[in-house]
Amino acid sequence: MLYRITVRNADGEKLEIVVEMSEDEVRALAEELRKAGYEVRVEPIPEGEEP
């Protein structure tokens, strides 16, 4: 499935990426980023919607 991941650092800089991963993989990635001090938001992209 496609997911949009938005990551912000302490300075407020934002990075937005689209990935194709399983829900478990995305959850693990988000958890690791949060542990590293980043603010993370994950949104699933519905099938048929443009990323």
Rank of each mutant, 00 (worst) to 15 (best):
M1T: 08
M1R: 08
L2V: 05
L2P: 03
L2Y: 15
L2E: 02
L2N: 03
Y3T: 01
I5Q: 00
I5C: 02
I5R: 00
T6P: 00
T6K: 07
T6F: 15
T6C: 04
V7L: 15
V7H: 02
V7P: 00
R8K: 12
R8T: 11
A10M: 08
A10D: 05
A10K: 13
A10Q: 09
D11L: 15
G12F: 05
G12D: 03
G12R: 04
E13P: 08
E13Y: 15
E13K: 13
E13V: 15
E13F: 15
K14Q: 12
K14W: 10
K14T: 11
L15E: 05
L15Q: 14
E16C: 04
E16G: 03
E16I: 09
I17N: 02
I17W: 14
I17Q: 04
V18A: 03
V18H: 06
V18R: 06
E20V: 13
E20I: 09
E20A: 07
M21S: 04
M21T: 04
M21K: 04
S22P: 07
S22Q: 08
S22M: 11
S22E: 08
S22C: 04
E23C: 15
E23K: 09
D24I: 09
D24L: 15
D24S: 13
E25Y: 06
E25W: 05
V26I: 07
R27F: 14
R27Y: 12
L29M: 09
L29P: 00
A30E: 05
A30G: 04
E31N: 13
E31S: 13
E31T: 14
R34I: 04
R34C: 05
R34Q: 06
R34N: 04
K35P: 00
K35I: 11
K35E: 02
A36M: 11
A36W: 15
A36C: 04
G37H: 04
G37Y: 12
Y38N: 04
E39I: 14
E39A: 12
V40N: 00
V40L: 02
V40Y: 02
V42A: 03
V42F: 11
V42M: 04
E43F: 09
P44S: 08
I45H: 08
I45F: 08
I45T: 05
P46F: 11
P46L: 14
P46C: 07
E47T: 13
E47P: 12
E47Y: 13
G48I: 12
G48V: 15
E49R: 05
E49P: 13
E49N: 11
E50P: 12
E50A: 14
E50I: 13
P51K: 03
P51F: 01
P51R: 02
P51C: 13
P51S: 12
